[in-house]
Design a protein around this nucleic acid. Sequence first.
DNA 1: ATGGCGAGAGGATCTCGA
Length: 274
Amino acid sequence: MHIATWNVNSIRARLDHLLAWLGQHPELDVVCLQETKVTDPEFPVVAIADLGWHCAFYGQKTYNGVAILSRRPLEAISPGFRSVLGAMPGTEVDAWDEQKRLLGATIDGYRILNLYVPNGSAVGSEKYAYKLAWLDLLHKYLQQLDIQSQPWVVVGDFNVAFTDLDLHDPRDREQKIMATDAERQAWQRVLDLGFLDSFRLFTPEGGHYTWWDYRGGALRRNHGWRIDYILISQGLRERAIACTIDPLPRRWAGPSDHTPVILHLKNGEQEAAP
DNA sequence: ATGGCGAGAGGATCTCGA
């Protein structure tokens, strides 16, 4: 099982890159996308189906939007917080689901959760408060579920650098978004539910990034951040073989500012032998 | 300190991202 995540920054603008990348990676089983920026009727199902992929998508005009592509059919597709938190009084789930940032599906017995975490704009802003509250809601969402009952893979653009190894320059990190203590603590509470950062199981050193600003020659100077992650539930640790960042799409002409991350898992018992 | 680049909306020049 090979699962990837990629913030494409508009699936319309990046369709050629996506299709080319899928063509170059026949090993992939599941690809989770963020910032598709299209409504569901606008999602390019045909172009993707032509390459042999099923897909589930949950989008809106201009902003946000998430999608899951899969070689095999997707089951138990659950868009937004609603499916899990809808019954909880006082959570105002409908308001939280106005921004399309969360999509779940089950594929081959793996529960996949694809996230596009709010950016937060600037420390102390309304959007920053929204980001922290959104992460609290994600914690509530995952708390409702039995993480031990089936293999869980939580992926996406998390918009937080977990540690100082995950950004090129950690100085003054409390003054800018993505590496403040509050953001890290909000994510730590989620991890403490029983998730592992699969990339760090294999790569202890810093200097590995998934996002480089378009501005200021950030890519050329390798001024990057690792903000795209693939988390696995504890039970999957023994099946994890590797988690790698593919730096190539970020170097193509007209790129997304993010580059994909891929998790390699050994086949479990519930999967048929090839 | 600010903007720097790119996408979308809309039809010039905004907002937003991270």
